[in-house]
Design a protein around this nucleic acid. Structure first.
Length: 461
RNA sequence: GGCCCCAUCGUCUAGCGGCCUAGGACGUCGGGCUUUCAUCCCGAAAAUCAUGGGUUCGAUUCCCAUUGGGGUCACCA
């Protein structure tokens, strides 16, 4: 049984879009193998903990359609799925490591650690803990005296630790490059390294699929698995999504929160489709395909190890494609849901608007600015005398239209344009305030004669 | 800086030794359609396959080096 997971930490206002990408891959691998996709909240950093973050993360995941089989809010056979609720476990395993002699207590103060690091940096050496506390005397009495301590992993010297990454292949790192990582913090919480390994094992995770930035700490994890005598899971490090300047996608340079994309009117399935195309391509060269199809044909080994740049332009195009593929009825629902004010319009108007609006929306947000004329309470008065004159002409001509439909309106407008030697944008400006927009005759036909006339009256006041 | 990962049009990518005078998509620029703007359709520009060495009858494809980019070096994940 394939089991994958993502371990978000509730330290931000929402889930990072890069994590949505990782979640997508985890989800696809699990579902492709008819396995389970799990969410485990890694809330072990009390200083960075943010209230409400977990709820937001979970709701975003749901909004994107990445339905998880086990998680903190829905439970599962390996509950609890929140690390803060599993504290005794980590302590127990940390002690086991001490007993086995592969970890040790450390009483070093922040000050000593800082000083040590500064010295090492001054000597142009890689900062590393000097194992000062390894085998130190009086441990018990110091602990009893209330001294703070941590548990550190005792990294062996000069040992090659290698593993096969499903995306990168063989990766070997010398243990000399690895620091004696703190496993259990002085507040009793585990660090990421202890927490993931224990929980991934206990929760029977088969594939560790995470971002590439974790490659360098994988040796620590492997050492832990070996120390516990546990079977190693499969590792796959997916590329890190980049800013246009190639640096790691960050909120300073790009919108990164999942809900931002939703709030901007991007469709979840479009975002997922776009994400799927990063580092991976459809065997038939398809650009647009549903999640179900992706799940069916996706294979981890086909992911390219290169860090792709996040291209908002292509995402926007993708979104537009998805909007166009919607039926009028579906689109209407999406719009009302996104922009509740749309309900002020009658069902009839909304229905008539859909085909007009569909090919002109890149995001759901675009509906608002495309349809302002329908929501305007009164039209602004024109100041330009020429425009005013034109408005009068329109008023006269429109008033005499007996059959108020787009064909008649177009005919009338064409005549005026020809006679006045003007182009369409001029009429747009007068009637809608903008120089372009939805097809004018249709717009006015939907608006109705009465409203159109009143706009023109207002404008020449 | 040490270590690790990576390297095909501006961007996402196809390519897994000969089919490549390198294909597709986004974007860009032309054109068509047309009542504006879009959609849609057609076309164009755009990569000396980072560079230099090998291996081979033959390298975008394999190997090495260099260069460049990224990641990582916390009681954060």
């Amino acid at each position: 049984m394939v089991r994958t997971r993502i371990p978000p930490s509730p330290t931000g206002q929402d889930i990072h879009i890069g994590n949505v990408y990782t979640a997508l891959i985890n989800f696809a691998v699990a579902k492709n193998h008819k396995g389970k996709f799990i969410i485990r909240i890694e809330d072990t950093d009390r200083t960075r903990f943010q209230e409400g973050s977990e709820e937001k993360i979970l709701s975003s995941l749901k909004a994107f359609g990445l339905k998880y089989d086990e998680g903190p809010d829905i439970g599962g056979p390996f509950a609890p799925y929140r690390q803060s609720e599993r504290l005794p476990l980590y302590k127990k395993y940390a002690e086991e490591l001490i007993e086995k002699g592969v970890a040790y207590y450390c009483f070093c103060t922040k000050e000593r650690l800082t000083k040590l690091r500064e010295e090492q940096i001054a000597q142009k050496k890689t900062p590393k803990y000097d194992k000062f506390c390894k085998g130190i005397k009086n441990q018990e009495s110091r602990m009893k005296a209330g001294e703070l301590y941590v548990v550190r992993l005792d990294i062996p010297e000069n040992k090659i630790i290698s593993f096969t990454d499903l995306i990168h292949g063989e990766i070997a790192i010398n243990s000399n490059e690895v620091d004696d990582q703190v496993l259990l913090k002085s507040d009793g919480y585990p660090t990421y390294h202890l927490g993931v390994v224990i929980d991934d094992h206990l929760m029977e995770i088969t594939h560790i699929i995470r971002a590439e930035e974790w490659i360098s700490s994988t040796p620590k994890h492997i050492l832990l698995y070996e120390s516990f005598g546990w079977k190693l899971p499969l590792f796959a490090h997916v590329p890190i999504i980049r800013n246009p300047d190639k640096s790691k996608l960050s909120k300073r340079k790009n919108p990164v929160w999942a809900s931002w994309y939703l709030a901007e009117g991007f469709l979840p399935e479009a975002v997922l489709n776009y994400l799927a195309l990063l580092g991976w391509s459809h065997p038939e060269g398809k650009e647009i395909f549903p999640l179900t199809e992706f799940i069916e044909i996706f294979d981890l080994k086909d992911i390219k190890p290169v860090g792709p740049v996040f291209d908002m332009k292509k995402l926007t195009w993708m979104n537009q494609q998805y909007i166009q593929a919607k039926s009028d009825e579906e689109l209407k629902k999406l719009i009302i849901n996104f922009y509740p004010k749309a309900k002020e319009l009658s069902e009839e108007i909304l229905d008539a608007l859909m085909p007009l609006v569909k090919s002109r929306m890149e995001t759901l947000k675009d509906f608002e600015k495309l349809t302002t004329v329908f929501f305007a309470k009164s039209a602004p008065t024109l100041s330009d005398p020429k425009e005013k004159e034109l408005a009068k002409t329109l008023l006269e001509n429109f008033s005499s239209i007996s059959e108020w439909n787009d064909a008649m309106l177009l005919e009338t407008m064409k005549n005026i344009m020809q006679f006045q030697k003007i182009r369409m944008p001029v009429l747009y400006k007068i009637l809608t305030g903008a120089e372009r927009g939805l097809p004018l005759p249709q717009t006015l036909a939907i608006l109705g004669k009465e409203k159109t006339i009143s706009i023109l009256r207002d404008s020449i006041k």
